[in-house]
Structure formats: structure tokens, C-alpha cells
Amino acid sequence: MAAHEFELTRNITIGQYLPTGSFIHRIDPRIKIVAFTVLVAAIAVCDTYAGNIIALSFVCLLFRLSRIPVGYGLSGVKPAMPFIVILAVLQLLFYGEVASGGTVYLKYGVIIITSESIRLVIVSALRFIEIIFVSSVLTLSTSTTQLTHGMASLLKPLKHVKFPVHELSLIITIAIRFVPTFAMEMEKMMKAQASRGAQFGQSAWWKIVERTKDMFPLIIPLFHVAMNRAEDLVLAMEARCYTPGGERTSYRKLRARPGDYLVLLFCLLFSLFLIWFPY
């Protein structure tokens, strides 16, 4: 059995934090969250080859500027590859009529493959990769505490309508933070099961059904660990006198610098370029 089959934490980039000290790490978290939202929206709308290639190049540049290895970002795409492949096959075979126009290459019953459906498959795969990359840059360059304070500050106006701003921000950041934690727990379980003779990773990566069956013995133990982790988190928050809905102050005040606003302006202009430039 290959050793890399157990290296799940190396392939999970979302939810981890790498303090490299780059200028992207020093940007105000509110600015980064808004810029992230704008970039994801632009990537989701962009539907051309050239636009997605430019977006992918820009995201790789973000890795470079944040001093995070691009190879580490690529490792975050690996867990999503089976879903990307399944989606690509379904789009290729059954989206021929939806993606109307273009040259028809194959028509057999409900299966229609056209040049437009092929374009849709490639563009959709690029979109998934770009969004994973952007999400990785955000979480790798922003700590969990910064994400919580940033989202709470952005959603603060909703407090006037009795919206639980802090609670929602806390839930989102905990969910993001627990992604690598659950990957680490699953890695421990796989190693424990393998030491007892269980087989993992024997099937090829494209045999998704077989690889899914291999994961069945881990589902119940993983749920059990998740419940225990949640209970420990509740006890820790109660020990610190956490009260939902209570008024809170922050030790550190978020202050955006002029350079942060320039970064946001550049992201807005780049997003508009991706959407409206006539490629």
C-alpha cells in the first residue's frame, strides 16, 4: 500500500494557516473576505477559455505573493478530483442540449457531445480549481481568529435586525477550522485500520465506487470523533463563560490601511475585467 494514501492532511489546504509573513498575510481580514467574495463571483460568471486561464494565472500569482508554494495549493485539488471528474463526465454526456450551438461530434439517444458541451466541461473544471485555489489562499494567509473578527465586523450592520452576527461568524470559522482536524483524525483511523489488515488505496483513483466502499468502515468512527470534538468544544466554551448573544469587545481593533483599500480596488477592477472584457 502506498504511503501517500495516508497523507490526507497534506492534501487539505482549506482551513490551515501558514504564517509566512507576506504582505497578503498583513492585509485587513475584512478586505480579504470582500476581495475573496468578489473574485469567486467573477470566476463563477466567467465562461471563456481565455478568462479562466487569466484567472488561474492570477490565483497562482497570489500564491507567489503570499509566499506559499503553488505545489502545496495543487495538493488541495487532489481530494476534489473524483468529484470534478464525475461532474465533467455528466456534463459531457448529458449537457449537449443545454449547451446549444457549436459543432455536434456525437449524437446517440440522449447523449449529445458538442463543441459547446466540451467548452462547458473545461470551463467548469477550471472554475472548481480556481475557487479551491482562492479559498486556500484566504485560509492559508488568515488565522481563524482573524476570519471570525473579520466576518463579525462585516456583518455588524445586521445586528440592528437582531441577526446573530457573532454566532454565525463563529460557526463558519469553526467549520473551516475543523476541515484539517477531521482529515487528521481520518488519517489516524486509516492507519489504525490498516494495521489490523484493512485495505485502503488498492483501487485506481478513477474507480470511485470501489474507493468509496473502502471508506465505509471509517464513516461511523469519524462521526463518533466529530461528536466528541463538538462536546469538548462546548465544554471549553462554557468554561470560558461563553454566552450566545452577549455583548463582546475585542482586544485588537481591525484597522484597514490605505494599501489594503488599493488591494480591494485592484481585485474589483480585475473581477470586472474577467466578466466584461470581450475575449
Results as ranks from 00 to 15, higher is better:
Leu90Ser: 09
Arg177Cys: 03
Lys188Ser: 14
Met190Cys: 07
Glu130Trp: 05
Ser136Pro: 09
Met186Glu: 03
Ser136Asn: 08
Ala204Val: 15
Gln199Ser: 15
Gln193Ala: 12
Leu140Met: 14
Ser153Ile: 04
Met190Gly: 06
Leu158Met: 08
Ala99Gly: 07
Ile208Gln: 07
Val137Ser: 04
Ile174Cys: 10
Ala194Arg: 10
Leu126Asp: 03
Ser124Pro: 01
Leu87Cys: 09
Val137Glu: 00
Ile171Ala: 15
Val121Met: 09
Lys191Trp: 10
Phe223Gly: 08
Arg119Trp: 07
Ile176Lys: 08
Phe200Glu: 10
Tyr108Glu: 10
Ile131Gly: 05
Gln193Glu: 11
Phe216Cys: 08
Glu167Ser: 13
Met186Pro: 02
Phe216Gly: 07
Ser117Tyr: 03
Ala152Arg: 01
Leu168Cys: 09
Leu93Tyr: 03
Leu92Asn: 00
Leu87Gln: 12
Gly150Phe: 05
Ile122Leu: 11
Leu90Gln: 06
Glu97Lys: 10
Gln146Lys: 12
Thr103Met: 07
Ile172Phe: 13
Met151Val: 07
Ala125Tyr: 01
Ile118His: 00
Phe216Met: 15
Thr139Ser: 05
Ile219Val: 15
Ile86His: 03
Pro180Arg: 02
Leu93Ala: 04
Thr139Gly: 05
Thr148Ala: 08
Leu155Cys: 06
Met184Arg: 13
Ile113Ala: 06
Ile84Ala: 07
Ser195His: 07
Trp206Ser: 08
Pro221Ile: 01
Met184Tyr: 14
Gln199Pro: 00
Lys78Val: 14
Leu154Pro: 02
Ile220Lys: 13
Ser117Asn: 06
Thr114Met: 00
Gly96Arg: 00
Ala183Val: 05
Ser203Tyr: 15
